[in-house]
Write a protein that binds this DNA or RNA. Structure first.
Lengths: 344, 344
DNA sequence: CTGAAAGCGCTTACAG
DNA sequence: CTGAAAGCGCTTACAG
């Protein structure tokens, strides 16, 4: 059945013109049949359908789009398509897009502002109707001409930089504050914080929540109890080991995100003394570890759904000022965050 | 800075014509500048650039594509954008596409053949240059006209149905056989198998591998030791509990995929007797559970990379017969698969 | 009920 | 070095 031949390649696909010629009708009649518009005799319609089947015609939506204006597609720039945290967000955006008859173009910024920009503008050049961006950079003025030209844009998970726009976030500050307060409530006074790089908004918000909880409890924060930086395992491991040793080791750790938590679990498992742990972000199997890992959970799917719904509201013509939506987090108690402070 | 006004929306974006008018040059000159073609005076070029900036012009790639033929985009139909197993595959495909200057459109079939078809054909209507499909259905003849018309197509993770096409797979049969043989080598004689639904190719291949290993060891397979079906936790739980009880309970279990493994771990943790476990597919934190979970690992990223590279080879004009590539799996020993049979 | 003409925003092929 | 005309494959607006 492999009827592929080099000369019958892209470019000589049958067009409506070909169908019209074969069916012996006008171009517009073919268009009517293809689009299910009324006003075509059953007999004419059949002739056109036959020609379509015989030729293997499929409407070129790119051409259609050029004429119609709307592309029925949206672009999603996320950090990493392979990151399990963003996967449900990705899927949620897809589902909303699908419900609105739109296709999804997506790509990974790899936490590189230039790559984020490149992707977002490539999507704009394809004239996506809307754009959802998980910011890597902190200056999004480059999107202002696009937004002004009508490409609806929503930022998610992190705020937009230097521009007014819709934003959907989790309450990083409140979540971290509550998580740290939980450790304090279980008797800890020396609590460490390991988070992502300081230029990432969620990292500094969570750190702010940590400091707020410590302050509220009247606890000091020693300099070496806080470490922000890349979430590569080596870096996190070194930071954790430093906090767990020395004259005044921490008895508990707050992990600023998923990747930090996972490495923290490994380091704690190998540590001389037990260390209590609360992590930001839930992850699969957190309940199966021993002890189960207590986490501050965000709802990534809801983040995606909310952002996409906001986007389509704009596409449906709702005009209102940019809004900032903050979704609550949830503390899930599983054991690691309820360990008492170890004797030092 | 929110200069968005309802009348200045999509449709009245500046075009090359507008730029040409403002710069006082011809259309083609603008095209030359935008595309970096030679033969433009520095002075003319500057005038055009100024007009572009002033107007906020961005080339409409949809129009460009219509004229040029190639869209520089590929479509990926996978099962679920939120599935952690496919996330690295997704990312790997993206990276290869990016290296070739192509954008990625993707979507989830949700294991529904109709939805797979709908997505794949929608991508074809957008005239993607190529298509990568993780099949949900088992009849892909619907793609033959598209393939014949020049849309390069590669199937990955599962074979195409009823049509000749490029396919990239993991060695499900061999992997399962080796995993079960590993359990046999550790003294097990009563081994259960829980897998995905029987219409899914990888599920039956893995079952075939299980049977082959049992046969090679001269071991019988009792009827209730095998269970194929949806991987929903309730179903897997019921199947596992049935195998773990009764007069001749299994002492070991082979889990046909990720989702089955995770549920199996939970059921085993709560079981009266220890049950050895080997799972198909690796997963994060498998080594942190106690015991660590021994798995047959596939390289999902390599699966995606291989498929995408094959696709772009075709797009680069290489003409050859459809090929089936089978990637090896790797047994990762972590503890759960080395438990001895429990006394019954 | 049907179709010819114009146009969406670009690029191609050609002429000056 | 520069640009006018034709065309990519559709849809829109209009006429018969």
């Amino acid at each position: 059945m492999a009827q592929t031949s080099p000369q019958y390649r892209y470019g000589n696909r049958p067009t409506m013109k070909d169908v019209a010629a074969r069916a012996g009708v006008g171009l517009k009649t073919v268009s009517r049949v293809v689009n299910g518009e009324p006003g075509v005799t059953p007999d004419t319609e059949r002739r056109v359908q036959d020609a379509i089947t015989a030729l293997g015609f499929r409407r070129n939506d790119s051409a259609r789009i050029l004429r119609k204006g709307r592309t029925a597609s949206i672009g999603l720039v996320l950090e990493d398509l392979a990151d399990p945290f963003y996967a449900p967000l990705n899927r949620a955006v897809e589902e909303v897009a699908r419900a609105h008859g739109a296709l999804l173009i997506n790509g990974s910024s790899a936490e590189d502002p230039d790559r984020e920009r490149e992707l977002a503008l490539a999507f704009c050049a394809r004239r996506v109707d809307g754009l959802i961006v998980i910011p890597a950079g902190d200056d999004h003025r480059y999107l202002e001409p696009e937004i002004a030209a009508g490409i609806a844009t929503v930022f998610v998970d992190r705020p937009a930089g230097r521009t007014a726009a819709d934003v959907v976030l989790s309450d990083s500050f409140g979540g971290a504050r509550d998580g740290v307060a939980h450790l304090v409530a279980h008797g800890h006074r020396r609590i460490g914080f390991i988070g992502d790089q300081p230029h990432i908004h969620t990292a500094t918000e969570r750190l702010r929540g940590y400091r707020a909880a410590m302050r509220a409890a009247g606890l000091p924060v020693e300099e070496n109890w806080v470490s922000l930086g890349p979430t590569a395992p080596e870096r996190v491991r070194a930071a954790a080991e430093a906090m767990f040793s020395g004259p005044r080791p921490v008895t508990a750790l707050f992990a600023g995100n998923n990747r930090v938590t996972v490495t923290a679990v490994r380091v704690i498992a190998a540590a001389a003394r037990p260390v209590a742990l609360v992590g930001f972000d839930d992850f699969e199997l957190a309940d199966l570890l021993s002890p189960g890992v207590t986490v501050v959970a965000q709802d990534a799917a809801r983040l995606g759904r909310t952002a996409a719904e906001r986007l389509f509201r704009r596409l449906d013509g709702v005009v209102e000022a940019p809004r900032r939506v903050e979704l609550p987090t949830r503390l899930i108690v599983r054991g690691s965050g309820e360990l008492p402070p170890a004797e030092s």
